[in-house]
Design a protein around this nucleic acid. Structure first.
Lengths: 142, 142
DNA sequence: TGCTATTCATTCGTATACGAATGATTTCGA
DNA sequence: TCGAAATCATTCGTATACGAATGAATAGCA
């Protein structure tokens, strides 16, 4: 017999839930960061550059979960805003070296608490132990 | 004192985890559906139309978590593929009535098990009880 | 009834996100 | 060392995703 094709509840599918939860979080994050603040992806890139001082473009993409094509767009916009700087790698001429500008560094420092607030707000419906459990479970399916 | 600005671990932020988990699921879903199969969002629209026989465009968007602008694009592509049909609502002339075509109905029936397989594969790293817990927790933050 | 508020659908602009193809460069193995 | 394989970055095309603005139509209320 065919695997019960009557009981496909979209609302109970992990993909749908991930999509909706992510949508909600992005909305919260954008609201928290305010007018012309960085998007979640842009902020992730800024944070990773802040941790490493200097990264190649593709390496930055790998650290933040962006493919090279996406990374290109995100980096271009951050450069346009003067938050990061690019330079040729003198050793490996294929590479583009990226680093935070002074302005970018200051921005990350200034926004880190707002990013945390976005996390808090997203998880607000759950108790602290449930929050830890959710983060742990999600960490295992990525 | 400022709320510890040293310990922002991107990998432990709910937003980052949701984004990565969603990325992984979409990749699994696309692979499962095969060449020119529907995307997760397209499939969600098809499923909801299959449940309701007929829906207005915005109503479909609300059921599947798409805003009107996104819905427009998704619906346009499904119409181009002959999977759904549109008609004017004779009573409310603002509305567009959407329904599954015969082909769309057959496609949903044929792909429902693949959608389930995508769910299973996405959740594979977790035990059954963990899977239920994750789904329950996600359901509470959407 | 008549007018305001709401709803519906569309369009425009911006921002991820990814596959595929490409050219330049570097790495690596025979 | 030299040629194949891999890596880096870019570009193109497609698909969500959403804010904002718009025009048409309906709903709701005084």
């Amino acid at each position: 017999m065919p695997p019960r094709s009557e009981t496909y509840r979209l609302e109970a599918q992990i993909g749908h839930l991930l999509r909706r939860a992510h949508q909600r979080h992005v909305a919260i994050f954008i609201a928290e960061m305010g007018e012309d603040g960085p998007t979640p992806t842009q902020f992730a890139a800024l944070v990773k550059l802040g941790e490493s001082k200097e990264l190649s473009q593709n390496h930055l993409g790998r650290l933040t979960g962006m493919d090279p094509a996406t990374t290109k767009g995100v980096v271009t916009r951050l450069i346009e805003r003067g938050l990061i700087e690019r330079a040729q790698d003198p050793i490996d001429k294929r590479r583009v070296r990226l680093r935070l500008s002074g302005e970018g560094l200051a921005l990350v420092a200034r926004l880190i608490d707002k990013a945390r607030a976005a996390t808090t707000a997203t998880l607000a419906p759950l108790s602290p132990s449930e929050q830890r459990r959710l983060i742990s479970l999600l960490g295992r399916i990525v």
